[in-house]
């Protein structure tokens, strides 16, 4: 369950982006490499658990999964591997340890909404409309 530690780090990064107490995080986009060893369901579970009653409550984790990409010295080209079981060039069969992608564990972006605005603005319209209705003959 190292996903709990990862969730804590994600929350910490997201909280640093918030600038006012009325802001809420709606979603967080992550880039996770095939070799990074993160179990999605455990991450969702941990994230939901630790964000309850915080500005991140209910935020969605949007995960972009990145396949392993190696550099094949024989083909002199970047090659995407179909799995994580064999570091072998799928085109020519050369073994290569030159990993170029697959260990990513990044927060790409955070979607924030300021509920101080999104809630209050229409509410104040409503109040004005109600007040107008009450005062009108």
């Amino acid at each position: 369950m190292h996903e709990l530690s990862i969730a804590h780090s994600i929350v910490e990064i997201a909280k640093q982006q918030l600038t006012s107490p009325t802001e809420r995080v709606r979603s967080i986009r992550l880039r996770i490499g095939a070799l990074s060893c993160v179990h999605r369901d455990s991450l969702y579970f941990s994230f939901d658990l630790i964000t309850a009653d915080t500005p991140l409550a209910g935020a969605k984790l949007l995960i972009d999964e990145l396949p392993i990409v190696v550099f094949c010295p024989n083909c002199e080209a970047l090659r995407e591997l179909p799995g994580i079981q064999s570091f072998t060039c799928p085109a020519c069969g050369t073994r290569t340890a030159d990993l170029r992608q697959g260990r990513e564990l990044d927060v790409e972006s955070i979607e924030v909404v300021d509920e101080g605005h999104s809630v209050n603005t229409p509410t104040s319209h409503m109040v004005t409309a109600e007040a107008r209705a009450r005062t009108s003959p």
Binding site: Q17, D106, V107, S109
Partner: peptide, 11 residues
């Protein structure tokens, strides 16, 4: 909603 580009390593 605003999208903030963070591009940070989680760890």
């Amino acid at each position: 909603p605003r999208i903030l580009e963070v591009r940070t390593k989680i760890l």
